[in-house]
Design a protein around this nucleic acid. Structure first.
Lengths: 222, 222
DNA sequence: TCTAATTAGTGTACTATATACACATACTAG
DNA sequence: CTAGTATGTGTATATAGTACACTAATTAGA
């Protein structure tokens, strides 16, 4: 490795695309920037990696600082390293994406007085830096992984109905699914079990509640 | 983003897992380290990212410096960011993997007088840094992508026979495939066409040669 | 030049998986 | 007690994947 040439220092950040299903729509958490550059624009939560923490730890720390949640699904997405992606200088970012269960989160309380809010993925404002590209990459990854892994379970609360789970698949996948075939294929995975409880939430038959057999486990299927 | 705290500087490198099929086996290109740390140990080709080049450009540059090849398949793999992965200090690496067509390469000539050589993936020496983990990650990615993309075509020379292609799938996937089913599924992709030429290389019927319709194109299939 | 050896090249029947589809059930609101 | 609404369930069909055996074209050597 070359050691004599002077190298312009490169700063390293993490940015996190935090997904959650809210009101039957896929949402992303954004932070309004308080300072330049891109003051007033919306951006992904994130920040510089400390010298004494791993990149993954930095991402988990930022996630907790912005949302107050721990132990949610967090996966490295891609590293964005264009020369001019940050006007302040040479900054590369290791992007992650996180899945937060529906309704499990009071974001504003945890978000350090900065203006944070959820935006529907199909109604995003203009984003700072290259964060639009990062969100698009994360969205594509999420859609792809829905098809060959059990990642969708990571967006469910502790107890959930099969109809709720189906709505998650439909909202992310963007197409309606057959109820009987959906239930057949989900139950065949043997990832969930009945809790024995029912949920009544309307003028109709109550739904059985299910839980994950091994929370946190994500399998590759198909 | 915090700006007042002093940050220990983080250096950024790229490391590249260069795969090629040689003598019906999957091989990886390694470089013998000439200096400390890990002097004499084998390591992945790679080096520091310059301040005025993108991370992807840095990877492509390292690839060309070590192998002399350009325009081969090169994909970002994963970013390895553990605190203590490099004894010299805080260094994170953006790992890539590359696919080089069989027989298209004279590595030693291009490799800048350092000792470079191919190792079978099932007979690797002990590697420097966390490069063993990087190779394992790349190998897993390659096997997975074989199953849902047309990435295998990127390891073929300009003209190739269907039997050659089948051997690539068999060598990477690690299991024998049925000849008729293999040909049926490959031709159904409509990715290749006959060149009209034949290759005779032994005491048997000559094989039809094929070429990619759109070289460089990689599709997601299935 | 004939025979043996070797790899190339080809189709069909069967099995497993995925898809399409309709009605009874249990509850609430009025 | 009736109307409305979301839950819960099985079967038949279509599609995709898998298993399987022989002929063709060449070279080497008897």
């Amino acid at each position: 490795m070359s050691s004599s040439t002077k190298r312009k220092p490169i700063s390293v950040t993490t940015d996190i695309v935090i997904f959650s299903i809210i009101a039957d729509a896929l949402n992303v958490l954004l932070i309004e920037r308080g300072g330049e550059p891109f003051k007033g624009k919306w951006a992904l939560p994130g920040g510089f990696v400390d010298g004494d923490e791993s990149v993954a730890d930095g991402a988990a720390r930022e996630l907790e600082e912005e949302t107050g949640v721990r132990n949610v699904y967090l996966e490295q997405l891609y590293t964005f390293g264009a020369v001019d992606r940050d006007p302040r200088g040479r900054v590369i970012t290791v992007a992650y994406y996180a899945l937060v269960p529906s309704g499990g989160l009071n974001v504003r309380a945890a978000s350090d007085a900065r203006d944070a809010s959820w935006y529907r993925i199909d109604g995003l404002p203009e984003l700072a830096f290259d964060h639009g590209e990062i969100v698009a990459t994360a969205h594509a990854r999420l859609i792809a992984k829905l098809g060959y892994s059990t990642i969708a379970f990571q967006m469910m609360p502790q107890e959930f109905t099969l109809s709720q789970l189906q709505r998650v698949y439909e909202v992310i996948g963007g197409e309606a699914l057959d109820k009987r075939n959906f239930r057949k294929s989900i139950l065949a995975l043997e990832m969930i079990e009945e809790t024995g409880n029912l949920r009544s939430e309307g003028a109709h038959r109550p739904a059985k509640l299910f839980r994950l057999r091994e929370p946190g486990q994500v399998r590759i299927v198909r």
